[in-house]
């Protein structure tokens, strides 16, 4: 496929600008991004300039940027936080919610305040409850590979030629749809139950059990059983399920896409 070779030959030269915004998360998502190890340098050398991210760079005010990666849910009793997400939306072309907290609340769904020194901090909502979010990368923690893939595809979407844009658009579409779906920001094992098992779509492959980051899912007579008292609402099981979304046309090119991702990270 043309798409793949052209990119590898280094046709693309304009980097995008990217920022990391930390709301009520644990920095595990940023750590996951950094866990691309040497790949981080490839991304920063070739594709993206890191223009904001308090954990890594000294910039203290949010600049305009192409892509904002938001980690963490938002405490609605903290004006600093609610103002900040609005500012991020205003200043970014693409907003990507990374990780369970930003996408679906994750453990912060269990918060109910009452703790000093700010006992009124009791309500935490996923970012997409407050602003339009373009892309979801769920799970706790999201994986270095998923973050890498989404960064590369977003780069192609913004800077690629028509074919590359088409490929990136296809790849990102389900993650964009998830950001707007009625269940994306409400995800938990329940979503897998309601949107897959209850709809007669589960075929017992076990993807959900492998994806679960808290070992809440076992397979009983070939079907997922979720211990809901262990579930942290990260949404990994549902998004990993081949029956949550699956684009046959894209997946047919799995070999080329994997090859392309490998090549661009060289």
């Amino acid at each position: 496929m043309e798409i793949f070779t052209e990119h590898v030959n280094g046709i693309m030269i304009h980097k995008i600008t990217i920022g990391h915004i930390h709301e009520s998360g644990c920095t595990g998502c940023l750590a996951a991004l950094m866990d691309n190890y040497q790949g981080i340098f490839t991304i920063l050398d070739k594709y993206a300039d890191l223009v904001y991210g308090l954990t890594l760079v000294d910039v203290r005010k949010i600049p305009k940027m192409d892509v904002a990666l938001i980690e963490g849910s938002v405490c609605i009793q903290d004006k600093l936080a609610t103002d900040e997400v609005r500012e991020v939306r205003d200043k970014s072309s693409v907003v990507i919610a990374i990780g369970g907290c930003a996408c679906s609340g994750n453990i912060t769904r269990f918060d109910r305040g009452g703790q000093q020194n700010q006992p009124q901090h009791e309500s935490f909502v996923p970012v997409s409850d407050l602003i339009d979010v373009d892309i979801f990368v769920p799970a706790c923690a999201p994986t270095p590979e998923a973050l890498r893939n989404v960064c590369v595809m977003t780069y192609l979407l913004l800077r690629g030629n028509d074919e590359q844009k088409a490929l990136a658009g296809m790849y990102l579409k389900p993650l964009m749809d998830l950001a707007r779906s009625p269940y994306g920001s409400k995800a938990s094992f329940n979503t897998l139950m309601q949107e897959v098992i209850n709809l007669g779509l589960c075929m017992g492959c076990g993807s959900c059990a492998a994806a679960c980051p808290v070992r809440a899912i076992t397979m009983e007579y070939g079907k997922p059983q979720g211990l809901r008292d262990l579930c942290v609402n990260c949404g990994a099981c549902f998004s990993q399920c081949p029956r949550s979304f699956f684009d046959h046309e894209l997946m047919e090119h799995h070999e080329q896409i994997m090859g392309m991702l490998k090549a661009v990270m060289q």
């Binding site: 709301e23 006992p119 942290v232």
Partner: peptide, 19 residues
């Protein structure tokens, strides 16, 4: 912001709390 996790874990099954 204070996520209040020490309060959030009250009443929860012990298996879940370390997670």
């Amino acid at each position: 912001p204070v996520r209040g996790l020490e309060k959030a874990v009250l009443g929860k099954p012990m298996e879940q709390v370390p997670k």
